[in-house]
Amino acid sequence: MVDDVYACVVHAAGDLRVEERPAGEPGAGQVAVRIEYGGICGSDLHYYHDGGVGNFRIREPLVLGHEVVGRISGGDLPAGTPVGIHPATPCGACPECARDRRNICASSSYLGSAARDPHIQGGFVQELIVRADQVRVLPAELALRTAVLAEPLSVAIHAVRQAGEGAVDGKRALVTGAGPIGLLVAAALRQAGAAEVVVTDLHEAPLALASQVGATQTIRADTTDWPDEIDVAIEASGTAGGLRTCLERVRRGGTVVQVGSLPGGDTAFAGSLLMTRELTLTGAFRFDHEFDTAIALLADGLSVDPIVTHAFPLDEARAAFDLASDRTVASKVLLDLSGDTQR
């Protein structure tokens, strides 16, 4: 245990600080985790640039981060045990929890989120106290730098599962957007048995990464040269244009899964195509049991390491966030919280 810790805190749009905070002590049913790596997510970038994600606006200083791994430093588990942290705490009592759809629990707490008031403080902090049932002991052979991808990989696995049981096995799938989630969706599609995975993006660098993690074909999003008979399309760009591409390119009777975070408010989409071609359009939000699946796949050697392109020490958080915002250069950018930080 430590006397004080440093954390990456957003106060408002463009106002990101590394500041000292008092360390806590784990209570009953809790553990303390000395965080080593944290992955910067698209939602973290939205909080940094826009002061919110969709309708969730910053109303108080918020410690960012929900993709975090580290080692036990207090509580009932042995000190030094490597762990991943499931960022969600569903209520356990609502109809959604009762139906085992805890990822859409309206009362769930999620690390680094402004969805509730007071906000749920996140994991970009040198030592984090969480419920013991949120931690997963990691296999000894799984490096923490790779294990930090378990959370976004869980999102990708859930998106693939939302297409339906066996829906991608032996089929041709399309992924719009080759950011970290889109890249992990491509890897998850191949692991689920997709025969072909077509990935689109506007930039060459992420498309090159897509080829390394499972894409069988990459296409510039501004091209007119498209393959026929897309069976399943997964929209990972979070743009209206990406959604339209999915609705236009998927075969008649096909399925589209929206996993990219669209802007708050209304989004125009090609509803006539949805109707006349009898498409299925469904959403994919966060994950639940997929977290354990993701850890197992990473431990088994799922090839996703190229997605991590950069790592910065905590006291260079602003530089890390700025680089992570440039998709022509960076994919998944990590904060390394394992060293000493002084400001």
Rank of each mutant, 00 (worst) to 15 (best):
Val2Thr: 14
Tyr6Met: 06
Ala13His: 05
Gly14Ala: 07
Glu19His: 00
Glu19Lys: 00
Gly24Ala: 03
Glu25Ile: 08
Gly29His: 08
Val33Arg: 05
Val33Leu: 07
Arg34Phe: 03
Gly39Trp: 07
Gly42Phe: 02
Leu45His: 11
Tyr47Arg: 07
His49Met: 04
Gly52Asn: 10
Asn55Trp: 06
Arg59Leu: 08
Pro61Met: 08
Pro61Ala: 10
His66Leu: 10
Val69Gln: 04
Pro78Val: 12
Pro78Glu: 14
Ile85Glu: 07
His86Ala: 10
Ala88Arg: 08
Cys91Lys: 12
Cys91Leu: 10
Gly92Ile: 06
Gly92Cys: 09
Ala93Cys: 12
Glu96Tyr: 13
Asp100Ile: 00
Arg101Gln: 15
Arg102Pro: 06
Asn103Tyr: 12
Ser107Trp: 00
Leu111Ile: 04
Gly112Tyr: 03
Arg116Phe: 03
Pro118Val: 00
Gln121Ile: 02
Gly122Cys: 02
Gly123Pro: 04
Ala132Tyr: 00
Gln134Gly: 05
Leu142Thr: 11
Leu142Gly: 13
Arg145Gln: 13
Arg145Trp: 02
Thr146Pro: 05
Leu153Lys: 05
Leu153Asn: 08
Val160Ser: 03
Gln162His: 13
Ala163Tyr: 09
Val168Cys: 12
Asp169Lys: 15
Leu174Ala: 09
Gly177Cys: 07
Pro180His: 09
Gly182Thr: 10
Leu184Trp: 03
Leu184Lys: 06
Val185Trp: 04
Ala194Val: 13
Ala194Pro: 14
Ala195Thr: 13
Val199Met: 09
Asp201Asn: 14
Asp201Arg: 07
His203Trp: 11
His203Glu: 15
Ala210Lys: 07
Ser211Gly: 15
Ala215Asp: 15
Ala215Glu: 14
Gln217Val: 04
Ile219Cys: 11
Arg220Val: 08
Thr224Val: 14
Asp225Trp: 09
Glu229Phe: 09
Ala233Gln: 12
Glu235His: 11
Gly242Lys: 07
Thr245Phe: 03
Cys246Tyr: 07
Leu247Ser: 08
Leu247Gly: 09
Glu248Phe: 02
Val256Glu: 09
Val257Phe: 06
Val259Asp: 08
Val259Gly: 07
Ser261Tyr: 11
Ala270Leu: 08
Ser272Cys: 00
Leu273Cys: 08
Thr276Pro: 04
Phe287Met: 05
Asp288Asn: 04
His289Ile: 00
Phe291Gln: 01
Asp292Ser: 10
Thr293Cys: 01
Leu297Gly: 01
Ala299Arg: 03
Val304Ile: 13
Asp305Ala: 14
Thr309Arg: 05
Thr309Glu: 11
Phe312Val: 04
Phe312Pro: 09
Pro313Phe: 07
Ala317Pro: 00
Ala317Glu: 05
Arg318Met: 06
Ala320Trp: 01
Phe321Lys: 03
Asp322Asn: 11
Ser325Ala: 15
Ser325Phe: 01
Val329Thr: 13
Ala330Leu: 06
Lys332Thr: 04
Asp336Ala: 03
Asp336Trp: 03
Leu337Gln: 09
Gly339Arg: 11
Gly339Leu: 03
Asp340Arg: 10
Thr341Ser: 13
Arg343Met: 05
